[in-house]
Every structure is written in C-alpha cells, then in structure tokens.
C-alpha cells in the first residue's frame, strides 16, 4: 500500500482541487482529507457519512468559581498568559478564570492550586468521519474551531484511511494535506511514500516551496512538484522547477491559469469531471507523471 500526500506550503495554490481530480482519475484509492483545520474536499466529493466518531485530545484547565480563593498561584505558574483576574468582589476576593483559547493544557495550574479549585477535563476537539463518495471511500474530519492538536487528528485520519485500504485491499491512499510546515503538515507527511507539492510561480510560492521541500527532505520522502498557474510568470516557473530539481524533487508538470478551475469548484465538480479542456489535460498529465515516479499504475 502507498500513501501519497498532496501539500502546498503556501495555501490557496489549488491543492484540494487537484486532489479531487486525482480522485476522479483513480477511483480505487482511499481518500483522506488531512487539511483538518479547513477541510474542503467534501465540498467537491459530497460524501455520505457512514460512521462518525468524536475526537478527544488533551485536557484544558477550568477554575471552579465557588472553590477559588483568589490567591493568584495559578496566574503565577501559568506561562501561557491563560489566567484572567477579575476585579475584587464584595468579599475582596479576586476570582481567577482560564481563557480557553490560551490554555496550553499543561496542567501546571491544576496541581499547584492550593485550594484544588481547578478541574482538568479531557477536551473534545472535533469529529472524524468515514464516508462514501462517487470516487471511493473518504476519511475526513472536522476540528472544533480554535482547537489545538490538529496534528493528532491528522494522524488519526491517516491511520483510519490506511486501515480501510488494508481491509478493502486498495493500493493507494491519497492524502489532501494541510498548508504550512508545522505540526499538522509533519503529521501528514511522516512515513508517506510520496509527496506532491502544488505551488505557483509567485515570489511567495517560491519562498514556501523551498521550505516545504526542506521538510520533505528532512523526513526523506520522495517529492514531486507541480506548477499551477504557470503562465502568470513563465520565467519564474522555470526557475522554480530548476530549484526543485536542485533540492532533489522532480517536476511533474504545469497547469495553466484558467477560470475553469474555479468554475468547476462552483459546480461541485473536479476539473476533470467537467467538459474536455486543455486545463483538464494539464491535470491528467501531472497525475500520470506523478504515478510514474511513485510506481502507481495510472
């Protein structure tokens, strides 16, 4: 079984639209949407949810107002600025509380509170789903907005997709990865057999490509690069392909700038599902070329 991950470094380069097209071109894959902070693949694939599970991760501190003596020890030990202090009440007590968006979940306040006034409940951070789509099974998730530890949810989605691929004897797991180079991307990449970086010939795309290829190299994952909207700046596109080669990655094709890209999204379809076009041919060529280096039969 092979896990193939599609990432972008910089967001908004067309990664999810391409993943949807690949799913249409290779319907025997298991699909995994690992962009759990802002999952969009389901908008094209319109999954029917067959199974849903809660995702819990870590703990968060909650100060019990009745038990708080206002001593301030929690604020002293918290390094994340998560403790808010109220004005003194009629008894002169300054009630302390935890700002959930700032709490790191370290528990230091919990066991340093002399009044044992702080609870530490497990956090419900989201849900994950196992669904059917017109292009095969999809594992996807929804993170509670503002939650932390999307990296663990990414790992969980990948694990479920791998298990499903094993059960159903499917050769490929196609992973729509998150943007950036931080925790969720690392979780989406580690141990995968191939990564495709979808980028664009812009100064920001070039800068981020360099970082994301460093990351792929750090985890020793064979990288391919595709230039979307290449004709916005052909010289830059050529320069980036050259830089990609120098970084050990393989360019696998160019996709033209075309409003049909957005038009397909508005119809809830992958580009290759809309009427035949040069844009669709560009995308097919990228898939075929990527298959050639990952050893998948297109």
């Amino acid at each position: 079984m092979k896990e193939l991950v599609i990432i972008s470094g910089k967001g908004g380069t067309g990664k999810t639209s391409l993943t949807a097209s690949f799913a249409a071109l290779y319907p025997s894959a298991v699909l995994a949407d690992c962009d759990v902070d802002a999952a969009d693949l389901h908008l094209i694939l319109q999954p029917k949810i067959r199974r849903r599970e809660k995702f819990r991760s870590g703990h968060a501190a909650v100060i019990c107002a009745e038990a708080c003596t206002g001593c301030g020890r929690c604020a002293e030990v918290c390094r994340f600025g998560a403790i808010a202090v109220a004005e003194p009440d009629e008894t002169g007590r300054r009630l302390h509380s935890v700002a959930p968006t700032a709490c790191e979940g370290c528990g230091v306040c919990v066991w340093n509170c002399p009044a044992q006034a702080i609870d530490f409940p497990e956090q419900e951070c989201g849900e994950w789903f196992l669904s059917g789509t017109r292009h095969g099974p999809l594992v996807h998730a929804r993170l509670v907005p503002g939650s932390e530890n999307s990296g663990k949810l990414v790992s969980l989605v990948r694990e479920q997709a791998r298990q499903l691929a094993q059960q159903e004897d499917r050769e490929v797991v196609l992973v729509d990865g998150p943007p950036g180079v931080g925790c969720p991307v690392i979780a989406a990449l580690t141990g995968a057999q191939g990564v495709l970086v979808v980028t664009e010939p812009t100064v920001a795309g070039e800068h981020d490509l360099h970082r994301v290829l460093q990351l792929a190299d750090h985890f020793r994952i064979p990288a391919a690069v595709c230039l979307n909207k290449w004709d916005l700046h052909p010289e830059q596109a050529a320069r980036m392909e050259k830089a990609a080669r120098a970084a050990g990655a393989t360019p696998v094709g160019r996709i033209r700038y075309d409003d049909a890209f957005t038009a397909a999204q508005r119809q809830g379809r992958a580009v290759v599902e809309t009427e035949a076009s040069a844009l669709g041919d560009d995308i097919r060529a990228v898939w075929t070329n990527w298959c050639a280096i990952t050893g998948v039969t297109p």
Binding site: G151, V154, C183, I186, A187, T190, G191
Partner: peptide, 13 residues
C-alpha cells in the same frame, strides 16, 4: 536480527 538503530520515522504525534 537485533535492531541497532531506529527503523521508522515514527508518527510525529
């Protein structure tokens, strides 16, 4: 065989 170094990148989280 005895393993004398890590043989997986592991899953980071």
């Amino acid at each position: 065989p005895v393993l004398d170094k890590p043989n997986s990148e592991g899953h980071w989280v």
